[in-house]
Every structure is written in C-alpha cells, then in structure tokens.
Design a protein around this nucleic acid. Structure first.
Length: 529
DNA sequence: CGACGGGACGC
DNA sequence: CGACGGGACGC
C-alpha cells in the first residue's frame, strides 16, 4: 500500500488526503472524506502510538518498523504553527500481530542518541477512554470450545502461536461440566494476536476483557449464551481428536509397522478363510478423505471391521486432502470395509473415497468368489454395530446431531456400470475451493432459505457454497430456517446462486438469493458520530 | 515524556 | 413463504 516513496520527502505530518484526486475515491476503507478516521484502527490494535525524540523523521521510522510487517501508514505529528515535530508518531500496520511484535521489540530502544522511545498500542478514536492498554489486556484470549475440550486440548491447539502461560476451561461449579468457553494466556501480546488472526475460526478467538471490567447484566446475573451456540461443535469432526461419532468405536491405537512391511501382521487367524499370499495386496486400502480426519479417527472407524492391523493418515500436499492407508489381516475384511464405508460422508458433505491400494478392484468386484466369501464372513452383527453408531445419537439432548441426516440425506445415482455415486446434494458442483480468509472484505452477500426448519449441518453448507471460490462464511441464524453466505467476489456469489438455488443439500431444498443490505449497518452508518 | 487539521445523517 | 448470529472468569 503506502511506501516511503509515496510520500516523497515528507518527513513530518503525513496526511493521506494530500495529493489525492478528490473525484477518485478509491479508498478501500469504505468511508469517504471525514469518515476515514473511523477505519484507522482496523483491525483493532494494529496501530502504534510512539513517543520519540523530536528529531525522528518519517523515513527513519519507516526503515525501523518495516521489518515487522506491512506498514500501512506512518504519521509524525507536528505543531500546526511552528511545523516543529511534537515527538509523537503513529505507525499503522495491517495486522495487530505485526504492531505488537514491533512494540515488543522496539519499546524502550533508543533512536540514534536520543531518549528511549516509548511505544503503546494507539488508543482508538472510538474507545471513549484514555487509558492505555496494558500487556495483561493483550495477552489473554477468549475462545469457544467443544464441551469435552480440556486444558490440554486448548494447549495443543494454541501452542503453535507462542508460549502459553496457562489455559482455562470454564466449568459449571456443581456439575463440573464445561461451559464451552476457555481462556488462553500467552506470554506476549503478539502471540495472542497471532492466535486471534490464525487459529481455527470456529474458536472465535478474541481478546479477553480483563475480569475486573466485566459487568453483570441488569438482572445481576452473568449472561449465559444460548445452547444453540454450541451446535457447531456438536457436529464438528475437525475439531479435536475423537468426535462423538467415533467415541468408543474400535481400537484407539494400533502398532505402526514400518512402511515397507507388507508381510502379514500377526493377528487372530480367520478360520474359514485362508489367506492367499497372491492376493495379499488386496488387504490394503487407500482412503481419500477430508483433511480434518486424523489417524486416530480413521483407526476408530476402520477398526469397526475386525482384522485391522495398520492404519495411517498423511497429508496429500498436492491435492490438499488427506490420504489414509488401511490394512487388514485378511482380504475379506478389506473388501467388506470398502463395501460398507466407501462414500461415507465425514464430515457431512465430504464423502471418503476408498480404493484398494493396488488396482485390484476389478478382480474383487462383481461375482468374485472372494468377495462373496467376505460378505458371508463378516456377519450381520458387525454391520448392525456399524449402523447403530450412526443412528443411536439422534436421541437424548443431542437432537441436532448429524448422523441420521448424514445417512439419509445422500443422493444415490446408479451408473451404467453398476457403481453407485453418492452425493449430499442434487446440485452439480465444481470441486471444493478454499475459503477466503476471515478478514477479506465482503463483496456480495446471499440470503439462504431452507425448506425445512432444520437446516443442513454447517459443514455440508460450507462444502456446497465454497465451490465457487471466495466464500468467506456461511451461517444459519440459530433456530431459524435462513442464513447468509458471504463472498469476497461477486462472480463467485453469482455462480453460487446459479448452481444452488432450488437445489437440495442434505435433503433440504434451498433458496439462494442476493441478500438485502443489512438493516443494522445502514442504521449504524447513519448515526455514526 | 503523551494523542491524531475540523467536521459529523438528512427526511 | 423467508431478512439479519453467538461470548466471559467464585476471591
């Protein structure tokens, strides 16, 4: 954006209006003229306030601060009449983590031979307070978490952003049940900022307000969030080690043989099927699946079928999916696993694709005797166990759980060759595309209405709406049958309407229309002071 | 040590 | 028909 050159030889009081064509307002701040000030601290805490010596020049600050990130603006304040520097400056970064790190590294450092400079997070114009932020207010984040998340889960999810001082899970005092919230205290503000910027967006990480500033609501009680808020975590397979659906299913861990170990793993011999060494390779399956599925989950799932003796999951960097390898101690179990679990949607909308590791599918399909033996061998009781895990959970207190929909909602089409193709939607969709970063400016918003009052699971909606690119977010309003999809690109949004309007996702018919402008924002802008 | 030209919707 | 999301800590 800005650069030292853009401001020529100015080394003082930089005004971005200078030299601008007033008819060509290409500012991306969405505010014209005097309203620009309100965007100065976006994102929050991305602007520094400096006390420097009066000799410090614009260019000097630029050269010093640019190593910490993308500088958007630097202003050195000067006396209106005398044009003398006031020894005060603002440095605006594009990210709070950059500003914080610059502050951490440079606060107290001397410029040339002058006094040490003092660096603070700039107070935003709209903050209505003149108090400076302390580090304690910049190092603790508040996050939403699944109900069964522990402090250790918090640690393992947030330690990548920096050194953690402690983690807290809020629990009910009498029952000990998690409230679905947690705190993470980092050692440094930049680490908390990195967590807010880069952690899984389902954590909804924000800076925690200091405890002493929190106020009770008018009833004098602490505000409790509605239960529906946790719905996403109930569904969410990507979130942690073992989601509810996989709990208590199959073995949790398996020995990891060497990768070149293609020999038989010693397992319980299957009496009525003698392993044929020439068919040994048919014990191996490859699984292409959603990257959120872990080895542990894959093990639990494929462990439902007896004879699992190897399971691993690796990142497929090229296709940005996850590749699983599964081996059974007999070909029958492998065939059965493929038969029963292929196209299983986990998360909903992401069918896993199972293939034999070698190209032997032709040999094991159709009336192949081995296949028939396998189907007899693996009993109906095992199958009943599989399906019970997918239907049991529809009941108490967890009525929103996804399993029943997952099994019923898929559309099956039989191809000429006899294969089934399973899809969670009637729409014809291009391949999955990555979501746009959360802070991407929204260009188009869609209004999404569901035919039934129970909308499809969020993963399925995201899966469908992401395929046109530039999807920022899609959400349904709690206990409503409508929601909004935000796109960072108009043509992506247009393509989503074309492909998805009138189609079904998980058995729910959708209307997809351009959304009216948000009512609240219009009001806000009107009354902004 | 120390805070950002001033201004502020529009029926 | 179907219009605008959710957040807090016993001291």
């Amino acid at each position: 954006m800005a650069s030292p050159e853009a401001h020529g030889d100015f080394d003082v009081d930089v005004d971005r209006d200078q030299g601008r064509d007033p008819d060509n307002d290409n500012d991306d701040d969405g505010f014209g003229g005097p309203y620009r000030n309100f965007n100065r601290d976006d994102p929050p805490n991305s602007r520094l306030f400096l006390m420097v010596n009066k000799a410090t020049k614009y260019r000097q600050l630029w050269d010093l601060f640019e190593q910490f990130g993308e500088i958007q603006d630097i202003r050195v304040l000067k006396d209106r009449d005398t044009q003398e520097s006031k020894g005060l400056a603002y440095v605006k970064f594009s990210k709070a983590s950059q500003a914080c790190r610059a502050m951490e590294e440079l606060n107290g450092k001397k410029l040339r031979d002058g006094k040490p400079m003092k660096i603070l997070i700039a107070q935003s114009r709209t903050s209505h307070t003149n108090r400076d932020l302390e580090d304690a207010e910049l190092t603790r984040i508040f996050v939403m978490i699944p109900k069964n998340f522990t402090e250790n889960d918090l640690t393992s999810n947030f330690e990548e952003f920096g050194e953690i001082e402690y983690c807290n899970v809020l629990r009910d005092k009498s029952t000990g049940e998690s409230k679905g919230y947690g705190y993470v205290r980092f050692m440094r503000p930049s680490q908390a900022a990195l967590a807010i910027e880069n952690s899984d967006r389902r954590f909804r990480a924000i800076l925690a307000e200091p405890k002493y500033r929190l106020n009770p609501n008018p009833q004098g009680d602490w505000h409790q969030p509605p239960e529906s808020m946790h719905a996403n975590f109930g569904y969410d397979p990507c979130f942690q080690g073992v989601p509810p659906i996989f709990k208590n299913m199959g073995p949790k861990t398996l020995p990891l043989p060497h990768f070149d170990d293609f020999g038989c793993h010693p397992g319980p011999p299957l009496s009525n099927l003698t392993s044929d060494d020439s068919l040994d390779f048919s014990r191996w399956l490859s699984v292409t699946m959603d990257p959120c599925i872990t080895r542990e989950q894959l093990t639990a799932l494929f462990g439902l079928i007896p004879g699992l003796d190897f399971c691993d999951a690796q990142k497929d960097v090229i296709n940005s999916c996850r590749l699983g390898y599964v081996r059974y101690n007999n070909p029958a179990s492998a065939i059965y696993a493929k038969e029963k679990l292929n196209q299983f949607e986990y998360p909903p909308g992401s069918p896993m694709m199972i293939h034999f590791a070698k190209d032997v599918e032709a040999a094991t399909s159709g009336e192949n005797p081995l296949r028939l033996m396998a189907l007899q061998l693996v009993t109906a009781q095992v199958m009943a166990e599989v399906s019970s895990h997918f239907t049991d959970r529809a009941q108490p207190g967890r009525g929103q759980m996804v399993q029943p929909q997952m099994m019923q909602s898929t559309q099956q089409t039989r191809h000429a060759n006899g294969d089934f193709e399973t899809s969670f939607t009637t729409a014809r969709l291009p391949p999955k595309q990555p979501l746009a970063p959360m802070n991407t400016p929204m260009k188009e918003r869609l209004f999404v209405v569901c035919s039934s009052s129970a909308p499809p699971p969020p993963e399925a909606l995201t899966n469908a709406f992401c395929r046109f690119g530039n999807l920022i977010e899609i959400y349904m309003l709690p206990s409503k049958s409508y929601g909004y999809a935000k796109y960072a690109d108009e043509s992506s949004a247009k393509a989503a309407i074309e492909a998805l309007h009138g189609q079904e996702v998980c058995g729910v018919r959708l209307k997809v229309l351009p959304a009216d402008p948000p009512k609240e924002e219009a009001r806000k802008r009107k009354h902004t002071v």
